[in-house]
């Protein structure tokens, strides 16, 4: 691993070097809630000063730049009984992600496993993922962050460089030669032992700030044991079935396909929309039979996929503990509370 130290002013220089010829996406303040608290989102950024590098959590994850909510998978030109299909992966230039938290990079790493690491890699995702230059940035744990329980509070790979704020300078971890070469364009120094000490101090202070947690001990077994538990029904009664948890989740990737014929009947398209297993027709088959007709069975399924099935397949859960789903859920359904209730730890 290669480390560097850069002054804070050098980060702006780095931004300018990149923004000259590349699209940059980063965290910005997109509004204020009714209590005047900042609401953050990822947006295209042209000016370094727009960036809110001290952001908490964006309401929506970085997912849409890799897995758009709506995406044309193919278009068809119709010609009598024949047709021509054109496939487009919908990306033609690399882009820079300037300031992604560890949880969100971990989320991409999880998506990589399903969407790039399997027998059938998904080009729509791979094309975007491979063309993203990612600069990670450290963060301040919020009350809803349980990333530490999910092993996602630090990130080992899946980015180009990662910066940690040491007050007047950044500690930089370099993971790609693109990043290495890029850093030659700004003033970057080898870290001193005192920088190492300060870095370790910063992360040990950060560790103390986590308040939310999820006990994942034996969770796959417990979920199987408690499959018929009434707690699912209680959460199901609260659930709006609106799909928001999946939409704000950085790791939810399931989708639906809609094909449409253009009104002049000369063309058609195949459109992919990110879906949610909480939606009523998710498990419905032709003829109308629904394998999960009740809200509670769908909500339960979402937890089983994330905390049992995925663990079975990849030895890790499909959750990074970013807490977005709990924050966005109007019905206040949060992962820590659901899991602790399934474990019988009534609060």
């Amino acid at each position: 691993m290669i480390f560097r130290i850069i002054k804070k002013t050098e980060l702006e220089k780095l931004f300018n070097v990149l923004s000259d010829e590349n699209r940059i996406i980063g965290p910005v303040e997109v509004g204020r809630d009714q209590d005047s608290q900042a609401i953050y989102g990822f947006r295209d950024v042209a000016d370094f000063r727009q960036l809110a590098l001290d952001y908490t959590t964006t309401s929506l994850p970085a997912k849409k730049y890799f897995l758009p909510y709506k995406e044309d998978m193919a278009t068809f030109r119709i010609d009598g009984k024949d047709w021509q299909k054109t496939v487009d992966y919908n990306i033609d230039a690399p882009f820079v992600f300037f300031g992604m938290h560890a949880c969100d990079i971990n989320a991409l790493n999880k998506l990589d496993k399903v969407l790039m690491g399997s027998v059938y890699p998904m080009p729509y995702y791979a094309a975007k993922r491979q063309n993203a230059f990612i600069i990670g940035i450290d963060c301040e744990p919020q009350t809803y962050c349980f990333c530490r329980s999910m092993g996602a509070d630090t990130v080992l790979h899946g980015f180009d460089m990662f910066i940690t704020d040491l007050g007047n300078r950044y500690f930089v971890e370099i993971q790609s030669d693109t990043a290495y070469n890029l850093l030659k364009k700004v003033r970057a120094e080898e870290p001193l032992e005192s920088d190492h000490v300060e870095y370790m101090h910063v992360i040990s202070e950060k560790k103390k700030k986590f308040t939310a947690q999820v006990d994942t001990t034996d969770l796959t077994k417990i979920l199987d044991m408690e499959f018929q538990s009434d707690v699912w029904k209680q959460w199901g009664e609260k659930c709006l079935g609106c799909g928001t948890c999946a939409n704000v989740c950085p790791t939810c990737y399931c989708y639906s396909i809609e094909e449409n014929v253009r009104i002049d009947l000369k063309a058609a398209n195949k459109n992919k929309i990110l879906y949610s297993c909480n939606l009523i027709d998710f498990a419905e088959v032709a003829g109308g039979h629904n394998f999960r007709p009740e809200r509670h069975s769908r909500l339960k399924y979402r937890y089983y996929h994330k905390h049992r099935g995925f663990v079975e397949a990849y030895e890790e859960s499909l959750c990074v503990g970013c807490g977005r789903c709990g924050e966005a859920c109007l019905a206040d359904i949060t992962v820590p509370e659901v899991i602790s209730s399934v474990r019988g730890e009534t609060s």
């Binding site: 027998v119 059938y120 998904m122 989708y255 996929h305």
Partner: peptide, 8 residues
């Protein structure tokens, strides 16, 4: 191909 999750 194990991507859309609909058949899980």
């Amino acid at each position: 191909m194990g991507k859309c999750c609909r058949c899980n």
